[in-house]
């Protein structure tokens, strides 16, 4: 059967990886390509690059990032961050990205999901949903990196993006992101139960138990983590061996 995917996420600004990454074995830990190739060798199943470069420069940096990563990396990778049009998606995919992820632009203009899916196929259209808990069993969608409330219910929005043709959902709990307290299990479960497309759980991974818990307690297909891998608290291999020891199917 399909393996649960382990996906490191790299934040990129102006073509450089931000957040201190401490790998002594890398020549240049700020180079997204070198870091990505390292993760490929270590056994990562897929990679997410989130370009946080402000405004217009971001467009060109995402295209060049996609083409540089494609030269060295032989696992699938997703590029996201401020993508707003079908033309931009076309350029990034043509440059070598396997999937793009859209967030704010999808909320502003849901037709973008439909157009992108129709033109490039659902399998390369990931919709990122940033959600914050508002009441017991209720989560609201936020945009602009979690700053702007939208009034949309996260579970309903997940169903809507599936109907529009999204091929996958990258679900981030804004309550848990950066806390290292573990994934938001009720949120992840609610979204996984609402849709039939794959869901990547994100936000809150602080240790390997957290990865196992969200996989065991929800129907998610993949887990995304940043700091636990970047700061080398755990290697991808350790994470996978741990998950395998708990009976979870992974690619070793």
């Amino acid at each position: 059967m399909l393996a649960k995917r382990i996906i490191p996420c790299l934040d990129v600004e102006g073509g450089r990886v931000v957040k201190g990454i401490h790998f002594i074995d890398l020549r240049d830990a700020g180079d997204p390509v070198e870091l990505a190739a390292f993760y490929d060798k270590e056994g990562a199943d897929e990679l997410v690059f989130l370009d946080i470069t402000a405004s217009y420069e971001g467009r060109e940096t995402k295209v060049s990032l996609a083409s540089r990563v494609g030269e060295e990396v032989f696992i699938p990778f997703i590029i996201g961050g401020g993508i707003g049009s079908v033309e931009e998606i076309q350029k990034i995919l043509a440059a070598g990205a396997d999937k793009i992820s859209i967030n704010t632009a999808a909320v502003k203009n849901p037709e973008l999901i439909r157009e992108a899916a129709k033109r490039f196929g659902s399998q390369c259209v990931v919709v990122a949903i940033d959600a914050r808990r508002t009441a017991e069993g209720k989560w609201e969608v936020f945009t602009h990196g979690g700053r702007t409330p939208t009034g949309l219910d996260a579970v309903q929005w997940a169903r809507r993006v599936e109907d529009l043709g999204a091929g996958e959902i990258l679900l981030t709990s804004m309550d848990r992101d950066g806390t290292k307290l573990g994934y938001d299990i009720p949120l992840t479960r609610a979204v996984c139960e609402a849709v039939r497309i794959p869901v990547i759980a994100s936000g809150g991974a602080g240790n390997l138990q957290h990865l196992a818990e969200v996989i065991e307690e929800t129907n998610c297909d993949a887990v995304l983590a940043a700091s636990i891998f970047h700061y080398k608290e755990y290697s991808i291999k350790q994470a996978k061996e741990y998950l395998a020891s708990r009976g979870i199917e992974v690619r070793l």
Binding site: M1, L2, D45, R196, P198, D221, R251
Partner: peptide
């Protein structure tokens, strides 16, 4: 099964 079949399989 979920279609497309997407991910790492044996």
């Amino acid at each position: 099964v979920k279609v497309p079949h997407m991910g790492w399989n044996i």
